[in-house]
Design a protein around this nucleic acid. Sequence first.
DNA 1: AATCCGTCCAACCGCGGCACG
DNA 2: TCGTGCCGCGGTTGGACGGAT
Length: 321
Amino acid sequence: MLVFQSTMEGKREEIRKGPWKAEEDEVLINHVKKYGPRDWSSIRSKGLLQRTGKSCRLRWVNKLRPNLKNGCKFSLEEERVVIELQAQFGNKWARIATYLPGRTDNDVKNFWSSRQKRLARILQNSATPSSSHSKSHKTSREVSTFHDVPTLQAPKFTSSMEEELSSKAPSCSSSNMEKAGTIKMVPLPDLVNPKLLHFDAHFELTPYENYPCPDSQLQIPFPNILQPQQDLTFSPDSQELLAGLEDPHFFDVFGPVDAPQLTNGAQLPVEESFLKPVRSFRNDVIVKEEYDNPVNPDAFFDDFPTDMFDHIEPLPSPSDW
DNA sequence: AATCCGTCCAACCGCGGCACG
DNA sequence: TCGTGCCGCGGTTGGACGGAT
């Protein structure tokens, strides 16, 4: 698309909008090679491209920059990081993106908004039992997944919560780090209705440039769903499942952990293999990423009865934060 | 096969902050 | 100190795509 813009001298300049052509990309890349990722507006003033400086910068940052994970879905760990950091920083997507190697603020923003829509839809369905159990079709993405379920929304972090976290974090993380060896603590907010679930959320995150070795074992706090703090009525399926949670081997998929640890505030070390996606490469580019694990997260929650999460409270609107 | 519907994502827009003259 | 231009960020939009009916 070409748009005409009048200049100070009254001349009309063509400004190109819309999808980028390969030739334009090439010009932009050459410019960055020569001058670095700056002076975006000079690209147009030099007549190299009929794009605004803004548009050039955006194209570079979101698509052309090296080491981007283009076309690669957010991994489980990335999702968790986004959820935690959104709770901590709010909608500071650029800041959040600095903690995610290869991700742009646009990626994070898009991921978050689509996730919010998905959760809103799920909550709407669960709020209207007739529809939640109706035969209205669900797309494959809508079926209860690990992403959809307890990670309902990042709660507002109040200053008192932050103080609490900062006061507890050192003892929690350092002692656990010592005990756990390679285990690292990762932030995670209280993800669901605290009346229903309870767990501690004390972690440390490392920004992009200091990102730790991925070989270390992850330790994820797991909500205590063994002792609901309010009377709940579940379907027979759900009751059966909840009974199954008391089976000490139920959580074996999360790796070595003693069943008694799974009470209040338990933290589950998750096997790296459980989280690590299997990636397919073509010419060093990731073309496919999936969890090729017999007990992958999605499959794990797919087994939950559909009414398991009907008791989760609706999200407060951001204005209520 | 056609259509509908939901999701994803690239790109644009508007605004605020900052540097510089 | 003020005005201007540039850059970066967050919000929004619209097209492409894929799954379900």
